[in-house]
């Protein structure tokens, strides 16, 4: 029987091959077939998760609530020192220098990345901005968010901080950051579904020592990760509770 692994659609496209290397590594460690299914949007992925087509997932923190509390997934690992932080940026030519200067009626370029979008909207609140008085322009990638700022088609852009940092210096030089979140405790995590619970002990043993051997280290580097660290049940619940407080209703 082959199991299905998937990755949150917000992973950086540059590291797509890394996830295929990880999938191969995983199959060798567990001695079972694992198929890597990648999605280009959250909606289709969530639909397949709800249809029980996914057995393991590297998930966006926003989806952890559904996976853990509704579908019985268990978070076992998170990447070391890789919290999900959000950046709000404007064109370098913009006269705006702080969030509070932004006015109702602005256009926000964003992606379908749920935690970045939520945090971005929260960081606009000090300017009395919300879904009712901004226009949201949802695009596919952070590069397109940047392009919208540079060509004047959006006033502000929301970025995953890691993605912002990976933009070219040429692009970054034409933008300025208004605010960057410093939350620290919201991050992606590797979750195992009910169908694969029997593999958790071996999986934990191999994942947490993965950075210690050359092959494992190479796979991690190709995914742009340093190493995996354990995630306890209470840490997972805490993160889900925290995200629950941020959901804009």
């Amino acid at each position: 029987m082959a199991y299905n692994l998937t990755v949150s659609p917000d992973f950086a496209p540059d590291h797509i091959s890394g996830w295929y290397f990880f999938n191969t590594w995983l199959q060798r460690q567990l001695d079972v077939g694992v198929h890597l299914e990648l999605y280009d949007c959250f909606e289709k992925q969530r639909s397949d998760i709800r249809d029980n087509k996914i057995d393991m997932i590297y998930a966006n923190p926003y989806d952890a609530s559904m996976l853990v509390r509704e579908l019985g997934f268990k978070a076992i690992a998170r990447p070391q020192e890789r919290p999900d932080e959000t950046v709000i940026a404007v064109s370098a030519e913009s006269t705006i220098s702080s969030v509070e200067e932004l006015q109702a009626g602005i256009t926000v370029a964003t992606t379908d990345d749920p935690d970045v979008h939520t945090m971005g909207m929260i960081m606009l609140e000090p300017a009395d901005l919300d879904g009712s008085n901004v226009t949201t322009k949802e695009v596919d990638t952070y590069v397109i968010v940047a392009k919208n700022l540079l060509n004047g088609n959006a006033d502000v852009g929301f970025f995953l901080k890691d993605a912002y940092d990976e933009l070219s210096d040429l692009i970054k030089g034409q933008m300025k950051v208004l605010v960057s979140s410093q939350i620290s405790v919201v991050h992606h995590s590797l979750l195992v579904g009910p169908t694969m619970q029997e593999f958790i002990p071996r999986l934990e043993e191999r994942l947490f020592s993965m950075h210690e051997d050359e092959k494992g280290k190479g796979v991690l580097q190709s995914m742009n990760l340093e190493e995996w660290e354990p995630m306890t049940e209470e840490e997972t619940e805490f993160m889900i509770d925290l995200i629950d407080t941020l959901v804009i209703e």
């Binding site: 509070e100 960081m123 609140e125 000090p126 009395d128 407080t245």
Partner: peptide, 12 residues
């Protein structure tokens, strides 16, 4: 209970 606080607007 978990309490999370964020920056409010001046008008609020």
């Amino acid at each position: 209970y978990t309490s999370v606080r964020r920056k409010p607007s001046r008008s609020k």
